[in-house]
Amino acid sequence: MSATLQIRDATPVLLVRDVVKAAAYYTDKLGFNVERFWGDPPMFTIARRDGVSVMLNQVDAGDSFRPNDYDGRFSLYLDVSDADALHAEFAAQGADIVCAPEDQPYFMREFQVRDLDGHLLGVGHDISGKN
């Protein structure tokens, strides 16, 4: 392995039923920005906020697609500077908040929000005092 070779980032790809509606939710409720769609009709977009990207990929109508049932597993986790402030922002915009911010035994203060397709997003900040 080369000393200069690095993996610099990872971008989640979430499967959605309707990419236009999903993009509107990420924009209107979660404060992301969507600049363009790909496909005719639209099938793909990238939502961005503060240097973080989330790809939204629409499944074909005939594909079997089951949104995440609540089982406590996150589709993605957002490491943020202030979970309480972001919770307040999301709540004010009408996002589907699953639970309010709480301190976790693994030294994160976090809350959960769900998108239109049932994807569970964890949102939290470090409370270990090591940052």
Rank of each mutant, 00 (worst) to 15 (best):
D50I: 02
S64G: 07
H125N: 15
A85M: 00
A91G: 06
A22F: 03
N131E: 15
A92E: 10
R8E: 11
R8D: 05
Y70V: 08
D115T: 11
Y26C: 11
D60M: 14
I97G: 09
Y106C: 05
V54T: 09
D96F: 07
A83Q: 01
R73P: 05
H125V: 03
M1D: 10
V16F: 08
Q6R: 15
A83V: 03
V16G: 12
D9F: 00
L78T: 03
V13A: 05
F44G: 09
L14S: 05
E89M: 01
G39K: 03
V52D: 06
V34Y: 07
D28G: 08
T11W: 00
N57K: 12
R114P: 10
D50W: 01
S81R: 06
D79M: 09
D18P: 00
M43D: 13
D63P: 00
H119T: 11
H125A: 07
A3Y: 00
F65D: 04
Q93D: 10
A23G: 01
I127G: 02
T4F: 11
G118M: 06
W38K: 14
R73F: 11
V19M: 09
Y25V: 00
F37Q: 13
V16T: 13
M108K: 08
D60V: 08
V80C: 08
D117E: 06
K29C: 14
G124T: 08
A24Y: 05
G51E: 14
A83C: 08
D126R: 12
I46E: 13
A47H: 11
L14Y: 10
A92H: 01
T27N: 02
Y26I: 09
D9W: 01
A47T: 08
H87Q: 02
V113G: 07
T27G: 00
A47V: 13
V123D: 07
V20Y: 05
P41H: 06
D69Q: 15
N68R: 11
A88I: 03
T45N: 04
Q6N: 13
Y77A: 10
P105G: 00
S128R: 02
D103H: 02
V113W: 01
D18E: 01
G118K: 06
I127H: 08
N68D: 03
Q58E: 14
A24H: 13
F90K: 08
Y106I: 02
A95Y: 09
A83R: 04
L86E: 10
P41Q: 11
D103N: 10
D63I: 04
D103V: 05
I97W: 00
G124C: 08
